[in-house]
Design a protein around this nucleic acid. Structure first.
Lengths: 339, 339
DNA sequence: CTCTGGCACTCGTCTGAGCCGAGTGCCAAT
DNA sequence: ATTGGCACTCGGCTCAGACGAGTGCCAGAG
């Protein structure tokens, strides 16, 4: 009974603090929420909540502010799922439907997320290793130089320049092209690399010195984890909206946004696409960003997570709203990728 | 004589203000520079400079600060070219030499510029319209869906998804592929679009309903100016280094950095690759960014400017240094693109 | 045992006065 | 044209005091 009301008080504190950005006092609380008790009672509850480390006061004569632990509890047990408004749903579908290629999908998703949550949005490109090969194209640029184009099931395209040790006739090239495609089309990247290895021994084009160079280059671009780290950021301007007390965060945040490796650590491992992960304040991996939270989820066709996407904002954020937006965008993107 | 000393005073003021970030007074000036005159004299000169609108005082009892007009004069007539240090030259060559493809070149240039100038760096991708077509590839994904891949002479690759109105057999597809390539390979983009138009009437694959859809899509992606607007930004974290008085600039700056269109307007039209353009404060096109300057130049093989690259920073920046860095990077990038 | 009204207390913020000092402008002298 | 001297201005800092939001605690009622 009492315990229940205390949690209601915590919820009210979180909600008020998120919307006003100011420490909330007992008086304001009973005014704005129908708690059915007096300020004094609320004060007692607050004292108890503070005892448990769920809220804190910035200074003695100020109202209370949720702690990381308080937000944690709120997110885990108190927040009710907030359905997106019709307008928001419409915005999602209409914006994502116009996408013409993978780059565009990613681009638009980022914008969308930033717009919906008014936070900083981060979207990772589908991970290379989990895609299958759709097609390999070899384009002669000069007699001794090729451009290899690797097209994946996700629509992702990897290109690479190849220097040949010798001239390569059109005939030989097309034979090589056929061999390569026969070997890898439809395979998962990891398997494809193995398959390619066999070409150098078996196939018709094997005699060519050029073959091994081309194959080596393809294998390299398949196992190139540099490109796995591709992420796109949007809504950085929302950083300026973080509000007071976040001046010191701007610098490290901007730095993190430029360092894709850091950003990926921040997003966290892609989990199944059906769960939304929330990391609050110090739970995150970056010291300097202790005042920020991350809401992220995996996405991809089926339940398998091809990559991660999410938002970053001040711990004092609208968690239910952000979680709903992140989940919704992830679903739509996944659906689009399925096609 | 007198006029000459006044300009020396202006130069001294600009240099001191840039390095200390604080209004500079007459006393400090004679201490730090060998002007050979007394503070009182300098004060008279300052009064004259202020009369001409070259410097101003933030408030009555403060030192002087250069105005936009003052910086302008400094840049045009007073700044001596500052050669890059050996270490900087080395940094440029070593960093840019490792680049593997166009994306990588652009990426690395941005980083480099940001690092060298400690400002925000912006690099535009080579403009589509000025490149020639190297190859067009059509990859079937499903019976009614194609991926078109357009490979340009600059190494740039444009992809696009195409929905077909009807199934397309492998035979028809390869005929179409051949026709398209025969028509456009080697052509400049603008001409290529025209050539494609003829296919629908003349070529062997013309009967197919799919042909017109594919051709239309290709033409669209060739004349798609959306992709001309591709720019990459780096060193956004340097925004936090702008210092006091720039808090209000952070927001509009971040917004501009996300809006590629705005960014391009900011950079300005690509001029010949041999001149470095400087736009100071209100000379720029964006109202909100009145406190910032842009140092930019064109780049590309030969003297023809394929695109623009440059840096954005507070008006109170090290112009000679920035100009040197921008010029140097542009030269190296141009050289790399020539290959 | 829970809730409530009352009350003293704390402490951060806001305001205004006063001081300090950097820097100026002007003037008379060289 | 240059210089030293001097009065003046004005922003920034510090300090004290008033204000008020919000608390903690307590005694009394249900």
């Amino acid at each position: 009974m009492v315990e229940e009301r205390r949690l209601a008080v915590l919820r009210a504190i979180v909600e008020d603090y998120v919307s006003t950005q100011e420490p909330v006092g007992s008086k304001a609380l009973v005014d704005r929420h129908q708690l059915g008790v007096s300020p004094a009672t609320v004060r007692n509850d607050m004292a108890a909540l503070e005892e448990e480390g769920l809220i804190a006061q910035p200074h003695t004569s100020a109202g209370r502010v949720p702690t990381d632990k308080g937000y944690r509890l709120f997110v885990d047990r108190l927040s009710t799922v907030k359905p997106l408004s019709a307008a928001e749903r419409r915005a999602i579908t209409s914006l994502l439907e116009g996408a013409v290629d993978l780059d565009d999908v990613v681009q638009r998703s980022v914008r969308l997320l930033a717009q919906l949550t008014r936070q900083i949005a981060v979207v990772q490109y589908p991970i290379l290793a989990r895609s299958t090969v759709r097609h390999v194209e070899l384009v002669p640029l000069t007699p001794t130089r090729l451009l290899s184009v690797l097209i994946l099931s996700t629509g992702r395209v990897e290109q690479r320049m190849i220097e040949l040790p010798e001239d390569l006739a059109e005939d030989d090239l097309s034979r090589l092209r056929t061999d390569v495609n026969r070997a890898v089309v439809g395979e998962r990247i990891a398997d494809a690399a193995d398959r390619l290895g066999q070409i150098t021994q078996e196939s018709a084009s094997a005699r060519l010195a050029a073959t091994s160079v081309v194959v080596a280059s393809l294998i390299e671009s398949m196992s190139d984890h540099r490109s796995d780290e591709r992420v796109v950021v949007g809504g950085a301007a929302n950083l300026a909206r973080f509000g007071e007390g976040y001046e010191a965060t701007i610098r490290p945040m901007l730095e993190a946004l430029e360092e894709h490796v850091v950003l990926l650590r921040l997003l966290g491992e892609a989990t199944s696409s059906s769960t939304v992960t929330v990391r609050i304040g110090r739970e995150g991996p970056v010291q300097e960003l202790s005042g920020t939270s991350v809401v992220a989820t995996g996405y991809g066709p089926g339940d398998e997570a091809l990559a991660t996407l999410g938002i970053v904002g001040p711990t004092r954020m609208d968690y239910p709203g952000s979680m709903a937006a992140v989940r919704a965008v992830a679903r739509y993107v996944s659906r689009i990728l399925e096609e």
